[in-house]
């Protein structure tokens, strides 16, 4: 019932916007019986799309299927009209991909790595390729490090090199998997900005992440994936809207603190003079007094995760 509602919600939203990727009934079951994806349906619009979900939700499986590194068990994916099952080559032509882990390099220099990626993307004019590579290195701030072995770059630089290789052939779809994990705040902001700049072009970016901040700062639409299923699909604003009235600030004594935290999903706890100031999500408070606060995306994320956990209709 809940799933049917969700699908109809999705369908409702996609009818009003252009769609670059259509995912229909996508299922992935690993040989060990683990159902990583359970009949996912998604219609991803152009722009920056956030795929949010906790670790193990199936994000990476979905991404690897989308970038044609893995075959789904069932279902269909269409990208810009190309069927992923039969037209991989066409899809690979319009695809840029930055994998989750992007640390270990073969013994290539930064410039070579990018040049190799450009060559394999069909850029056979050497002069154009050279200028494109140089420009991209400039853009990601790696020009100075062009002759350095890629393996010797810092974590942030490696990630920038990663996005550079994903962008070098100006793909229509860019898929980035957990791009900011492990980056320091400065690099993270820099990376988000870079993605935002790219998204200004006419491309679709799928940003898979478990960091809510990555989505809130840049995505125009998003989906929430949990346990192989879509918990939410829509805009971040819509997600916030749905969480409105569901986030509470409760002040409790030390005596009641335990009962409260056991009863409701907790977002934050702050000690105060005579007890605790606790943020929780709940349809309504039962037995406690609290005040509704304006939710942020993190609150909304917890709300949706918890809603699914408790089988609420959201």
């Amino acid at each position: 019932m809940r799933l049917a509602l969700l699908v109809s919600e999705v369908e409702k939203s996609v009818t009003i916007i252009a769609v670059s990727i259509i995912i229909e009934g996508l299922t992935k079951t690993y040989p060990n019986g683990n159902h990583a994806l359970k009949g996912i349906n998604l219609q991803i619009p152009p722009g920056m799309f956030g795929l949010l979900g906790p670790n193990g939700a199936g994000k990476s499986t979905l991404i690897r299927i989308l970038v044609a590194l893995m075959e789904p068990t069932e279902g269909k994916v269409t990208m810009f009209g190309h069927d992923l099952r039969t037209q991989k080559q066409e899809i690979r032509k319009i695809l840029g991909y930055l994998p989750q882990d992007f640390r270990f390099f073969a013994r290539y220099k930064t410039y070579e790595f990018l040049d190799y990626a450009a060559r394999l993307s069909g850029m056979n004019d050497s002069r154009k390729r050279k200028s494109a590579v140089d420009a991209m290195l400039e853009q990601v701030g790696l020009y100075e490090a062009r002759d350095r072995y890629a393996a010797r770059l810092s974590g942030g630089m490696k990630r920038r090199l990663g996005i550079a290789q994903a962008l070098i052939h100006e793909p229509k779809i860019i898929i980035v998997d957990e791009p900011t994990t492990g980056l320091d705040p400065e690099e993270r902001i820099r990376f988000r900005n870079l993605l935002s700049q790219v998204s200004a072009r006419d491309v679709s970016i799928i940003l898979s992440t478990h960091i809510v901040g990555d989505i809130s700062s840049s995505c125009t639409s998003m989906a929430l994936l949990n346990k192989g299923e879509i918990s939410f699909f829509g805009s971040p604003e819509e997600m916030l809207r749905r969480a409105e009235g569901k986030v509470w600030l409760v002040r409790v004594s030390n005596k009641d603190f335990k009962e409260l935290t056991n009863k409701y999903p907790v977002i934050s706890t702050i000690p105060i003079d005579d007890g605790w100031e606790v943020q929780v999500v709940a349809e309504k408070l039962d037995g406690f007094r609290g005040e509704n606060i304006v939710p942020n995306l993190e609150h909304a994320y917890v709300y949706f995760m918890d809603a699914q956990l408790n089988q609420w209709a959201v």
Binding site: A68, L69, L95, Y97, P99, F102, A106, L120, Q165
Partner: peptide, 18 residues
């Protein structure tokens, strides 16, 4: 072995070469 071990190899695997 290298292709298996290096996560960066995947960015070449997604290129449109057969």
């Amino acid at each position: 072995k290298r292709d298996k071990q290096l996560d960066t190899s995947e960015v070449f695997y997604v290129r449109p070469l057969s």
